[in-house]
Design a protein around this nucleic acid. Structure first.
Lengths: 144, 144
DNA sequence: GTACGTGCAAAATGTTTGCATCATT
DNA sequence: AATGATGCAAACATTTTGCACGTAC
């Protein structure tokens, strides 16, 4: 089991109390909080915490490859510390983002035709670094 | 050939000079401009145009299903009047978004396993309304 | 004529920055 | 001790809002 401190050290990140608390909270979080939401979660346990630190930390984590910034249509960005390739569902009403479970994500990602991706790279003269799939969803009607 | 006026009328949108100019410009646009960029394109030909109107119009167009707001990781939103299902490439350095040509988009979308999508709907208790695929790309090194 | 859109300026939101202080290495 | 992170407030960028006026229906 790798501790957060080890992980940070391996990635040249200083182990400050704030960063560790923020990262651990983000990891424990099923939702994909905005900076403000994450701030709200950690602040009670760390009264001196500043919102600027949350932004700085999230930037540093993304930079180091320990978190991902998720694109959203609303004005706010959301963050995800689960770096495994997986899909997201974005709820149209709330803007909330949820994970598609690993096994289902894999099933879908494994079915992507690699040949087409290579064609796209050639056609556009680009190199593809990542694939981001977001499903737009709403809670199904009827018995939930 | 459907004129913009017809299209607007069919969708219960008032045909104001501003809306028509904005929509036509957005349609003619290969890039996926931000509100500000679109404003910059139309303003010269329509000096009275206000940025608030651009935002209002883009909202109305999205609401009516004539345009789409594209999620981005940067702070700004981008807009697309091409409502056919197609993929996007997001350039990591500039934040710019470009279309993957229709035929290649189709090839990839047609290969998505429908069964897995249904499994996802069942598993999460949701209804999937749309699939948004963004490739992260950078210009390929070497001979372009 | 009425309902709705526009333009303007001001406000609300989300994020970044500069700088003095403090903690980690 | 030196480097880099924090906290604060102010700056900045983007989007939304309120209201008087104008335009489409």
């Amino acid at each position: 089991m790798t501790s957060t401190r080890q992980l940070f050290t391996q990635n040249n990140l200083r182990c400050t109390t704030q960063r560790i608390a923020l990262f651990d909270t983000l990891c424990a979080c099923k939702s994909h909080p905005t900076a403000e939401e994450l701030f709200g979660m950690v602040k009670p346990a760390m009264n001196s915490l500043s919102l600027a630190t949350v932004y700085n930390t999230l930037d540093a984590l993304c930079e180091a490859g320990l978190a991902k910034k998720l694109p959203t249509s609303k004005g706010t960005c959301r963050y995800d510390a689960d770096m495994s390739e997986h899909l997201h569902v974005r709820f149209q009403d709330t803007g909330e983002i949820r994970d598609v479970p690993m096994d289902l994500s894999r099933k879908l990602l494994d079915h992507l035709p690699k040949g087409v991706l290579i064609e796209i790279e050639r056609d556009l003269g680009i190199h593809i670094d990542g694939i981001n799939i977001q499903l737009s969803g709403r809670k199904a009607n009827g018995i939930s």
